[in-house]
Simulated scan of single mutants.
Amino acid sequence: MSQTLDEIMKKNIALMTACDVAYQQWEHEPILDFDTDERVGERLGWTATPTKSLFLSFKSGGHALLLTHKDARLDSKSVKALMGQRPSIASNEEMIATLGCVPGAVCPFGLPEHIPLLVDDTLFGFDTLMYTPGPPEFTFAFAAKDLTVLLSALPNPIHLLGQPADA
């Protein structure tokens, strides 16, 4: 049984608190697409780098979540090299049933423990990162330097996904 959006949000707040990571929080209209994200971001004056979480599935029945920059594309070859199998983006129904998130607002933290988190290593080069902590009407931002601390506190398998040499 998947978790509720409120439970996901509480896990995110608990993670930030336990890791002593300072974060900003905004409540706004639900963001479920990039157009709304840009409109809300402009209105609220966001300067943090937006992230995107892609819920991936594998033919073996397994899953992974890719945390990357909002403009990045899925690099299936790099994921296959890392995970040993070619990924596809999971269906909305599969994602909802497994994670409890809503399409367009997938949270990278608070995942079921068995789901690996693939982290695009380019995220470490930014000053501040922002993401949806479950409910699509909330956005959190934190210093990118704290990403390592947050990842180390998670029970999930963590894999860094580097950029290919020709990118």
Results as ranks from 00 to 15, higher is better:
22 A>K: 14
142 F>L: 09
1 M>N: 12
154 L>W: 04
33 D>Q: 10
139 T>L: 07
44 L>A: 10
147 L>N: 03
129 L>N: 01
90 A>G: 06
165 A>V: 14
95 M>G: 09
110 G>P: 03
45 G>W: 06
49 T>D: 00
67 L>Q: 09
4 T>M: 05
67 L>W: 03
55 F>V: 14
102 V>W: 03
35 D>R: 13
38 E>R: 15
109 F>G: 05
89 I>A: 10
30 P>T: 09
145 K>P: 00
75 D>P: 04
57 S>M: 04
85 Q>H: 02
22 A>S: 13
41 G>P: 06
128 T>I: 11
50 P>L: 06
31 I>T: 09
63 H>I: 01
132 T>F: 00
125 G>N: 12
122 T>C: 03
80 K>S: 13
112 P>R: 06
43 R>H: 12
22 A>L: 10
151 L>Y: 08
54 L>C: 13
74 L>D: 03
108 P>W: 05
41 G>N: 08
144 A>Q: 08
16 M>Y: 11
128 T>Q: 13
25 Q>C: 13
131 Y>A: 08
94 E>A: 14
112 P>Q: 09
107 C>V: 06
165 A>K: 08
139 T>I: 14
42 E>M: 07
29 E>Q: 12
101 C>I: 07
4 T>H: 05
62 G>R: 13
103 P>S: 07
34 F>I: 15
137 E>K: 06
126 F>N: 08
69 H>M: 08
70 K>W: 06
64 A>P: 03
61 G>I: 04
144 A>R: 04
83 M>Q: 12
127 D>Y: 05
123 L>V: 12
82 L>P: 07
102 V>T: 15
85 Q>P: 00
131 Y>H: 06
71 D>P: 00
108 P>L: 11
80 K>M: 13
97 A>P: 04
53 S>K: 03
17 T>R: 08
88 S>N: 12
140 F>N: 05
90 A>N: 02
158 I>K: 04
126 F>I: 07
47 T>P: 02
54 L>S: 07
151 L>I: 13
121 D>L: 08
126 F>T: 10
8 I>G: 00
32 L>T: 15
105 A>D: 01
114 H>Q: 13
101 C>P: 02
25 Q>E: 08
1 M>A: 12
9 M>K: 06
74 L>M: 13
160 L>T: 12
128 T>E: 15
